[in-house]
């Protein structure tokens, strides 16, 4: 098998590790989300929901724990959606000519960049999770060591599939756009609906029907649900609402993420066959 995608992966990771500022800010930003937004909202919600009766027989988790999964998912969304920008710069600065005029099949560029963005997302998610645990996010409570390992593995799978899907989308946009400004605008516009129609920061159960439908097909919702399933459990309550999430639903979510990634991959491949860089 041609290992060309590893070359692309190698180069992108080289730059990621080399530029410590970028590395540092990409890790610090989500941590700040959790620290400021998480703690501020957490205190408000605790006060508002203090009078609500505790749902019997179900574990209740705090808001910080609830959005801990949301912030991890959000960070993955942003990192992946902006992850394709490197291709736009390569294209505009002529660097991509070297790659495109080489015998490397173009599909390897997509796969290589996809894997490197996935790696970055996993590193970020791990750092946010660690930071969250320090701040008081109650993940993996009452789990045995084996259960924790299985959960971590499940979370990795979900984040991996999700980040690949959005990276492919980002790559398709990057290779189509002419300017970084245009790319920035399009991506920012995209993040809004994905982010706010998901259950990352608040429960989607009380949405109006249209928003709830959007939320149900939103890959971000599936990722957040998946992370909560593994990190918190299949049945818990938070801010006065009970969440149940069966194994079957988790598998459905994962398959949905894989399907999303597959469709985005096909779109990216199609955009790449169209590109001429001279």
């Amino acid at each position: 098998m041609h290992k060309g995608f590893l070359t692309i992966y190698w180069r992108d990771m080289l730059r990621f590790v080399r530029f410590r500022t970028l590395l540092f800010t990409s890790l610090i930003q989500p941590a700040l989300w959790l620290a400021f937004f998480g703690i501020a909202m957490s205190n408000n919600f605790e006060r508002l929901t203090a009078t609500l009766p505790v749902i019997p027989g179900v574990r209740t988790v705090g808001y910080l724990t609830f959005i801990g999964a949301g912030v991890m998912a959000m960070t993955t969304l942003f990192t992946s959606l902006f992850g394709g920008t490197v291709l736009l710069f390569d294209k505009n600065w002529g660097l991509m000519r070297e790659t495109l005029s080489s015998p490397l099949p173009r599909i390897h560029i997509i796969v290589g960049i996809g894997l490197s963005a996935m790696t970055k997302s996993l590193i970020q998610a791990a750092v946010i999770m660690g930071f969250g645990l320090l701040l008081g996010v109650h993940f993996f409570e009452g789990y045995t060591a084996t259960q924790i390992l299985i959960s971590l593995f499940g979370i990795m799978l979900f984040i991996g599939a999700f980040s690949l899907g959005f990276l492919f989308l980002s790559a398709a946009i990057a290779i189509t756009m002419e300017s970084p400004e245009g790319m920035q605008a399009v991506v920012t516009l995209l993040t809004m609906p994905f982010f706010f129609t998901s259950n990352a920061l608040y429960p989607a159960n009380s949405f109006p029907p249209v928003l709830r439908a959007l939320s149900a097909i939103n890959p971000l919702t599936h990722l957040v649900s998946g992370i909560r399933y593994f990190a918190i459990g299949s049945d818990f309550s938070s801010i006065g609402i009970r969440y149940t999430y069966t194994q079957g639903e988790a598998i459905t979510s994962f398959v949905a993420l894989l399907a999303f990634a597959a469709v985005m991959f096909l779109i990216a491949r199609w955009r790449f066959t169209k590109v001429t860089v001279t």
Partner: peptide
Amino acid sequence: MTVRETLEYHGRLYS
């Protein structure tokens, strides 16, 4: 990228 890496990358592209 460094000078060596530039050449290295190219060589890798061509397997």
